[in-house]
Amino acid sequence: MKTMKTDRDLQTLIDRYLDGETSPREERQLALAVERRIQILENDETGETGECLETLKALRLMLGELTLGEASYDEVMRKRHSRRFMLRFGWAAAACMTLIAGAGYFLSLQKEPTRQLAEVTTQLTPQPPVRTEENPDAGPQPETIVQPVRESQGKQKVSHPVRTKRTRAQLSGTSSPAEDTKPQDVVMEEKTLAAVPEEEPAETVGDLSLSISPHKQALVDLFLAEEALQVAYELQAQQEVLRAYASSLKGKETPKAIIAF
């Protein structure tokens, strides 16, 4: 089938050439094709290609030797350009793949420190003890003041306003254990603390797990403890609401707080 297609194409080109419809480029292609066909027919041992061979040789004479030389020149240049194009395409593809891989690696590095920080803080932060009837002294005091860690350039003395959670009764000085636990009385009070010398700028995230000063670690612990305390207060408030609702349903005395501070 391939040979038949080639013969048909060659015949079509020959017909166009004899009709005067071919361009100089097509005539160069024809010259190459005719020469190749002549070589094949001359090597053919069957000897049944007489008239065809004569026609092709006559066409070769008509097309001329210069046309054939030009066709060879064009073929060499075409192969060379396609080779250069493949090389450039290969380099461009390799460069794109490198960029994509580098971007993916960079993105993975960005996510990595956050995960490390979360793991480290979880490991280092102790769980605040819960105050129960058995251990009434445990748990953080209601007036625990926690100073949040702030980043700043160099050592500076900074005073931060800190909000503490205290009940109205505590503020007025007439507090009682039962009143202390009412969530609607909780008031956020702002206090200005004494200046605390700032630490040096935070170390890189990658070094967090390896070298962290004790003072900084204490600050982190305090911050986390305040967060835990706020969560505990919220839980307690929710419990109070539930107990009140339960007592309203049952008509009994309100039970003691499960978690008391």
């Binding site: 009709d19 005067g20 006559a58 008509m62």
Partner: peptide, 16 residues
């Protein structure tokens, strides 16, 4: 185009 075509066909026949 016609004249070139005629010339080519004549030349081909003679060369064959």
């Amino acid at each position: 185009k016609v004249m070139i075509s005629t010339a080519r066909k004549k030349v081909l026949t003679e060369l064959k």
